[in-house]
Amino acid sequence: MYPAKFTYHAPWSVEEAITLMNENEDSKLIAGGHSLLPTMKMRLATPAHLIDMKNLRSLLSYIHDKGDHIAIGSLTTYHQIESSSLVKQAAAILAQTVSEVGDMQVRNMGTLGGSIAHADPAGDPPAAILASNATMVIQSSGGERTVAASDFFQGFFETAVGAGEILKEIRVPKFSGGSSYQKFKHPASGYAVAGVAVCLTKNGGNIGGVSVSVTGVSDGAYRANGVEAALTGQAFSEALAASAAAHAIDGIDALEDPFADAAYRGQLAKTLAKRAIIAAWNNA
């Protein structure tokens, strides 16, 4: 299984990569290649120009402590993130979520930037990005801009990253409350049939702030506002977790495929939401 022919480029700077994208209309960036190469081998993607970011790794592969947030270069691999003590301690939801992506080999190659720029509806990392209120730094020939997670994911494989733009950095606010990612894996591919990420703070016996995001269920990951509203400020109990979780797919047309119909997927999302809320409470 060979990809279709393409012209190969391996630029040494972000600016050079952007120039190459602007000069070659039918071009694609390649990071870890673990979403792009499989689709190219199936000839679902046939870019005429492939712009390999391998020489940008020294620039865009890092995990920095920035005081109130952690700055993660877009080419940082899942393995680097899951084994970072800083991420485990100050952005536990991200560490846990990426450790559940694919398998060891996939986590050695796949990058955080590639995952969220790709925005696979069954991808795990978008859930953590939304629940942790991360900010994305995007560069084009016109300069740099930042986009909040809530504006970043725009539907089926669609994000705020436009033509001629590179996702450079992901800024994850530090968080010391409780968190949990609960996932139902597709038994063959390992992707999320449904996945729910929860971050919450405790205020005595009550829930303080809470964020809940869902992946796998809709055309893109989303914040489950109904669940959040039902939890905020309330006294915690397992019954509350269950009744709040029932709002996990409010306003959503759940996806259907041969493995899971819409009703089953929706039910998975609610069950996983309940488990994630309880688990996050227990480790807050």
Partner: peptide, 10 residues
């Protein structure tokens, strides 16, 4: 790594 999912060029 899974070498069927890496370009030799990379």
């Amino acid at each position: 790594v899974k070498s069927c999912t890496v370009l030799a060029a990379s």
